[in-house]
Nucleic acid binder design. Structure first.
Lengths: 164, 164
DNA sequence: AATTTATGTCAACAACACTGACCCTTTTTG
DNA sequence: CAAAAAGGGTCAGTGTTGTTGACATAAATT
């Protein structure tokens, strides 16, 4: 009776597709106005959440090759959205930080996404929203969940530190 | 006290990114073995859920240009995964159907995604799973929600009809 | 001193999206 | 019935974002 039907999972699959499609389309208009694409957005986002991150660690999060990262990172550095600082302990490392300009763009990019989730929260309430987050966490590969936990925590710290 | 903090939404944004990334990576191995990519997967998936769909309607769901669709659709037709039938009422239309071969591949592709959600369901229970679906539905643009409802229902019908 | 690590860069290539133009067939409209 | 519109196919060119492979440099480690 309470057995799971396959069609339940098909619902879930469709919902993942359409929800992600609308969610990711939000910032596209802003990006295009700046001559950037989604790849630039991803870099901007994870540098924002992990100030001082190294190239190697960023590659690990994005799961792309360094040649692929290099192209968009060069765009962002040349246009003064991201700056590199040579590591204090290890002078081989290039630690990435948003500039004021980069931080401003990042805020603009996440604004529509925050608005979207704010409306969801308003519709379902804080408890259901927390439950949704727990569920989404379980959709992530189990071996990556703790890493994502750390990323989210670090990102939270980065926000409070800059009094954002 | 219970005011929404922006960091709550940042959590949600990160979770969307990582959950979708792992979710969509599931079928990649199978696709590569067949010489197909994610674009082929999307076409296969929506033809499976909407048997007899026209080119125009499929373009509407995928939100790509017909030139972009044509390339992958040609691959799938040439390799006998999808067949076109001339519309009975309107002979201009080319109605798309999966062949037996296409249906088999589609089943293989969704299997790991169904498994993923089955594990989520097992962890949180059917009630929380239903709540998650309602929440995901609210992440979709409000003007598209009813269309997605219809798509999901049609997809459910397509499954029961073929006794899948 | 030799090796490893972190990063950068050049070159070629592939998937997948786009625009613009043009074609054919079939249906609808005036 | 002729003209226009709708559905679909195709050619040509372009851009973004990913890939491999090879090689270079500076700094750290062994």
């Amino acid at each position: 009776m309470s057995k799971a039907k396959n069609s339940d999972f098909n619902d879930a699959i469709e919902l993942m597709f359409f929800a992600y499609r609308d969610f990711i389309a939000d910032p596209d208009v802003i990006l295009e106005a700046h001559g950037f694409g989604r790849a630039h957005h991803r870099v901007l986002h994870f540098v924002a959440g992990n100030p001082g991150i190294s190239i190697a660690d960023l590659l690990d999060i994005l799961r792309v090759t360094k040649q692929s990262l290099a192209r968009v990172l060069r765009d962002l550095i040349d246009a003064d959205y991201i700056e590199q600082r040579i590591g204090a302990h290890d002078r081989r490392k290039r630690l990435l930080h948003l500039t004021a300009k980069g931080s401003a763009l990042h805020s603009k990019l996440i604004a529509p996404q925050e608005k979207r989730f704010n409306q969801v929260l308003g519709a379902i309430g804080p408890q259901a929203f927390e439950q949704w987050k727990k569920t989404m966490r379980l959709v992530i590969n189990s071996e990556d969940r703790e890493n994502v936990d750390k990323l989210i925590e670090r990102s939270r710290d980065a926000r409070t530190e800059t009094a954002n």
